[in-house]
């Protein structure tokens, strides 16, 4: 089967005060039809830029796609016209955002906004669109859809708003749904409901999902395959089981070590800290050197790591580390 969305060697650069910095340096990713791909990483590692690139929405200026190919259904969208991109957005590729509080327009009712999304891509009357809005709101589990369609965003809770965003995103039955940290701003019980909803929708419409998150728990729960990103690169990639059970990159291990486990704190106060952490922060992009970007924070790092950037090699599954699999 050919991939639905395929990034190959994608480079994205931004003009900043520090000159031109590389936000994505050669990302390659495939999303298969109907699957869920997770993209994990800390803030600033390039997750959201990857998502925007998939929609052809890199803000320009200051951003530039300087190399590589973004293929959607066999079509290179880095070369597509604006008109073609507008057709694809919303109809074939849709996105839901991190902040349901701010991703809906405050001056229109949610029904209006969903109808707008439908009418942009489908030739139908406003009345038909309104009927579809009610159906969509029902699909995403909003009670009293007729009344809710007439509500303004500020009258809905965060979880409800995210459901509205999902309704808008699936209004034209897209093939690919990009979810950029869809539950970060929601509380835990609502998070679980939103994930349930996304799974239902995937089962119902067969949509492929790209789930961008920094929550390894969400990865374990939702994804088929995972790409771990660090400082604008994919550093490890594999099936969710491979990544969670046999992580090879010290950074991935660190991330998995950060998953809080109920009861661990009480049982292991002497040996382990209650919550693990990865020391340090992602280095600023303009200060990246030649070596491994994670070397500064890595317990296994040696001079070789600091001098030579490790390539993404298959060592059981693709990983970019000279010391893949070694225990610190």
């Amino acid at each position: 089967m050919s991939p639905l969305m395929s990034l190959s060697d994608l480079r994205v650069e931004f003009d900043t005060r520090h000159g031109r910095v590389t936000a994505l340096s050669g990302i390659s990713l495939d999303v298969m039809p109907g699957e869920t791909l997770g993209i994990v990483g800390e803030s600033g590692c390039g997750k959201s830029i990857t998502a925007l690139a998939m929609m052809g929405l890199i803000p320009n200026p200051p951003g530039h796609v300087t190399g590589g190919v973004i293929e959607f259904d066999g079509e290179d969208i880095t070369r597509a016209s604006n008109r073609r991109l507008r057709q694809l957005r919303g109809r074939d590729i849709a996105m839901i955002f991190q902040e349901p509080m701010t991703s809906l327009n405050p001056v229109f009712t949610v029904g209006d906004q969903i109808a707008e999304a439908i009418l942009l891509h489908q030739d139908m009357s406003r009345a038909e669109a309104d009927r579809q809005v009610i159906e969509l709101l029902e699909t995403v589990g909003i009670p009293e859809p007729e009344a809710r369609a007439k509500s303004y965003p500020h009258q809905l809770s965060g979880g409800m708003r995210q459901r509205v965003m999902i309704a808008m995103a699936i209004s034209c039955r897209p093939k690919l749904l990009i979810a950029d940290e869809p539950t970060t701003a929601l509380d835990v019980t609502v998070q679980a409901q939103i994930f349930d909803l996304m799974r239902d929708i995937q089962a119902k419409f067969g949509v492929a999902i790209v789930l961008i998150t920094h929550d390894m728990g969400a990865i374990a729960e939702m994804t088929d395959r995972v790409a771990v990103m660090y400082a604008g690169r994919v550093i490890e990639q594999g099936t969710s089981d491979q990544i969670l059970d046999t992580p090879l990159h010290p950074y991935t291990r660190g991330l998995i070590g950060c998953i809080p486990v109920l009861g661990r704190a009480a049982a292991s106060t002497d040996r382990l800290p209650p919550l693990a952490e990865i020391p340090g922060v992602v280095p600023p992009l303009h200060l990246l050197g030649d070596g491994c970007a994670f070397a500064e924070r890595c317990a296994l790092a040696d001079d070789h790591c600091r001098a030579v950037r490790p390539p993404l090699d298959d060592k059981g599954h693709p990983v970019a580390c000279h010391h893949a699999g070694e225990i610190a």
Binding site: L57, Q87, R91, M95, F97, E99, T102, S103, P106, L120
Partner: peptide
């Protein structure tokens, strides 16, 4: 710069 503008773009608004 607000997110709902990006969101509008993401549904294909020109």
């Amino acid at each position: 710069e607000l997110e709902y503008v990006t969101a509008a773009r993401s549904i294909g608004a020109g």
